[in-house]
Every structure is written in C-alpha cells, then in structure tokens.
Design a binder for these strands. Structure first.
Length: 264
DNA sequence: ACATTATCCTGCACGC
DNA sequence: TGCGTGCAGGATAATG
C-alpha cells in the first residue's frame, strides 16, 4: 500500500522500460477505464512519479498514468508469469512486460492523450519545498495538521504512515491546527517530512503485514523502513523518546498514531 | 473551508 | 469450522 517512497521505488525500477515500445496493452479488468488499443505501438519516453502517480510518458502520444491506491503494484517482469490479481499487462517489444497488479481493484490506470495535468500540491522532495513554502500553505488551513499532510492538493505524496512519523519526529500533536504552528515547529516538520521520506526511499519502502496487497519492492523482497517506524502500527508500545504508551486516534476516518506526552 | 461518512474492492485477523 | 465485524500504505463525492 504505497505512499511516495514506495511509488518512487517502483518508478526507479521501471526506468528499464524507457526506450521500449508497447506492442500490446492487455486490459484484464473491465472496471479499468482504459482502452488498451490506444496504446498500440506507443514508445515509452519516460517513467516519472508525481505525488503517488506513476506517469509513463509516451512522447507526443501523451501519458499513461497509474495510481496504485491502497493495494496496487506496478512491476517489470522479464518473462510472462502468472500473477494473481493482474489487471493490466503492457507487453513490450523488448520481451519484458509491465504488470499492474491490483488486488482490491482500487487502483486506477488512465490514458491522457494530451498529457497528464495533475491537480496536486508541491512535491516534498523538490527544491521548491522549503520551510517557508510549507509555512505559507499551512497558514491557509485550519485543518488539523495530520489530515492536512494527507491532502494531496497541499503536499503531494505523503500518506498515512509518513504523516504520523513526521509529526512524531517533530514533536507536534496531530490535532494541532495547521495554521497555528509556530515557525520553529514548521521548520522541524519541514525537515522531518523530507528526512522520513528520503530514509524510507533509501530503505526501499515500508513492508508490513502478510496480505497479498502488502507492499514489496520486488518479488520476494522486503522493504526495510518498517524497522524504523516510531509510531505507526505501534499502539500501546512505549514511545522511544519518553516511554509513554503510543496512542491511536481517528482523524478523517484514518488512524493516526502518536505520543500524547511528547507531541504537543 | 472544514469534518464526517459512505463508497469503491478484497482479504485477513479476531472474537464468538 | 463458520460467521459476523472491523480494519487496511488512498481518493473522492455527498452531506452537514
């Protein structure tokens, strides 16, 4: 269930398909809003990430955009394989294939003939994402900071795990109004958003759980960042900073993990 | 401009 | 073993 770091790991591994041509797009799920024939003979010129979207550039033929949502994965296979929950296969002229596996069918694949225009906020790992920029965006929102961080139109790519982790590192309560954060708090949050995302990418993402829908950087491999989570999924465990029990609360229908003692 | 809820799906963990 | 309930790394539309 990927957030920015996990999507980034998939995108990096997919760089190998740049320069290949799609011979045939095999759509295996009628719920996908995609006419595979539109992709015939399209040459792949780039594979990029925008927020949690995977943007496969097809030159003048536009973009194919895959969003993995809760359970998807997008992976290169060197030969034809049988993978449960495969919903789309891009057969390439190289002989490789790209598999969109989407167990819960929440993920999407859409073709934009004129190019993808995302309605998304700033990339947190871009140069433009500075403490003052975060401060500007946060000042406009009275939303609690945790749901604020999940709002893709404010900052693109942060999800439920890394929002909790960045707030814990910053010692900021998830219930604080975004617009009420002090300058030093915004500065800490900015730094920790960047650090937690970069560390997670370096660790090949976070692999937790035993479900088919759980994230793995590639077949048989595990991410490593689950070993560095301080609060996510650790309700009742002691806070590694102050020893107080980690608590869980619901915000906008999502679980937030935090320490009531040292996040204020 | 917010929060909340339901919805889209499927599988799994849990309690009884 | 079976059944009901709740939960899941996401996003969006409807409602208040």
């Amino acid at each position: 269930m990927p957030e920015l770091p996990e999507v980034e790991v998939f995108v990096r591994r997919l760089q190998a398909i740049v320069g290949s041509t799609i011979i045939r797009a095999e759509v295996l799920d009628e719920r996908l809003d995609l006419d595979g024939s539109l992709l015939d003979q399209a040459a792949i010129t780039s594979v990029k990430r925008r927020g949690k979207n995977i943007v496969i550039g097809l030159g003048h033929r536009g973009d194919l955009v895959v969003h993995l949502r809760m359970s998807g994965r997008l992976r290169l296979h060197r030969s034809e394989v049988e993978v449960k929950y495969t919903r789309l296969i891009l057969h390439l002229d190289s002989g490789d294939s790209v598999y969109f596996v989407n167990p819960r069918r929440l993920g999407t694949a859409a073709y934009y003939p004129s190019g993808f225009k995302a309605n998304l906020g700033i990339e947190p790992l871009s140069r433009g994402f500075t403490a003052s920029r975060l401060s500007q965006v946060a000042a406009l929102s009275r939303s609690p900071i945790k749901p604020f961080l999940l709002d893709q139109q404010k900052i693109a790519g942060i999800g439920n795990i890394y929002a909790s982790e960045a707030l814990w590192r910053s010692r900021i309560s998830p219930e604080r109004a975004a617009s009420n954060l002090k300058q030093d708090e915004v500065a800490r949050l900015h730094k920790n958003i960047v650090s937690v995302l970069n560390e997670a990418i370096d660790g090949q993402g976070t692999s937790i759980g035993t479900r088919v829908s759980d994230y793995h950087p590639s077949v048989g491999e595990q991410g490593k960042f689950q070993n560095h989570l301080s609060v996510y999924g650790r309700e009742t465990e002691p806070c590694e900073r102050c020893g107080n029990a980690i608590a869980r609360l619901k915000q906008s229908g999502r679980s937030t993990y935090y320490c009531k003692e040292c996040q204020t």
